[in-house]
Amino acid sequence: MAAPPHISEDPTLLARSYTSAPRVPPPWTPGRSGELDGPQPWGPRLGNPGPDTGYALTLVGRCVDNLTLGAGEHREDVVSGLAALAAKRAASYGRAPVRHDLDVAVTIWGFASTAIDPELAELRRTTFEGVGDPHHYEARRALVDMVPESALRQTPDAVVQAHAADWRSLFVAGRV
């Protein structure tokens, strides 16, 4: 770019040009705890990674007061279990949780209804027991793993119909 006429230049100096950095920095490598060296691991009890899965806790928090909890069921356990299941459904689509994910989880476990099968009520009470405690990761994983991805990927209306016809069809065979 030309200099303004009121700036004097020394005609004996060479024009400045680009010069590269004196050294090239080394390439980045994972070195902190929690950084993965390779692809996301997959396998039993490793969950389903997805973007912003923690938003499911916000969604459950907004509607937990409208859910029908049975005797022996605790709010913290229900919030944690439903959020984990909604996050699994959202991750299966590769997106963050939305209200429909929560609606499917609530319908599968029968929290939207006041009249549910006593067998489902007992299963729900024992399965959700303690999952709100952060130290009970295995219990939360077991709860989420009881519902196959094929059940979660149905539309909310299809889940309502399947639950009304036979709620056991929404769970992994042999775990109910």
Results as ranks from 00 to 15, higher is better:
N48I: 02
P30M: 07
A164N: 06
T155A: 07
E149P: 05
P41C: 12
A3D: 09
G43P: 05
V104M: 03
T68L: 02
V106M: 04
L46N: 07
R75W: 05
A91W: 08
H136D: 15
A112H: 15
E35T: 08
S169M: 06
P39G: 08
E149W: 08
R153Q: 15
N48M: 08
V104R: 10
R95F: 01
K88Y: 01
D52N: 15
A164S: 15
G132W: 05
S80G: 07
A2W: 02
A112L: 09
K88N: 07
P51W: 06
A173S: 09
T114W: 07
P41Q: 10
L120T: 01
V24I: 14
T155W: 11
W167K: 10
S80N: 10
E76S: 15
W42C: 05
G54C: 07
D52E: 15
G130E: 06
E73M: 01
A87Q: 08
P49G: 12
A158D: 06
V104S: 03
A96M: 04
L36F: 14
R23M: 13
A90T: 08
D145T: 02
Q154V: 04
L59K: 06
D101E: 13
F111R: 06
A139H: 06
D77C: 01
V64C: 14
Q40T: 12
I108E: 00
T58I: 12
M1A: 07
A71H: 13
P118R: 12
V78R: 00
D166P: 01
A165G: 04
P41K: 03
T19A: 14
L170Q: 06
A105M: 11
H163P: 04
G174T: 13
V60P: 04
D166L: 08
T53P: 11
L143M: 07
P49A: 13
G34H: 09
A115G: 01
G47D: 13
P49H: 04
L69K: 11
A151L: 11
G72W: 00
Y18K: 05
V176M: 03
E149V: 14
E138H: 14
L46T: 03
A87W: 02
F111P: 09
A90M: 11
P5S: 11
G110R: 00
V60C: 14
D65N: 10
A90F: 02
L152Y: 01
G110P: 02
L69E: 00
D101C: 08
Q161A: 11
A115W: 12
L120A: 10
E9I: 10
R23H: 12
R45F: 13
L123V: 00
D52A: 15
G34T: 00
V98F: 05
G174K: 15
E129F: 01
P44D: 15
G130I: 04
Q161W: 09
R62F: 03
R89Y: 05
D103E: 13
A84L: 14
R124S: 00
W28L: 14
L143H: 05
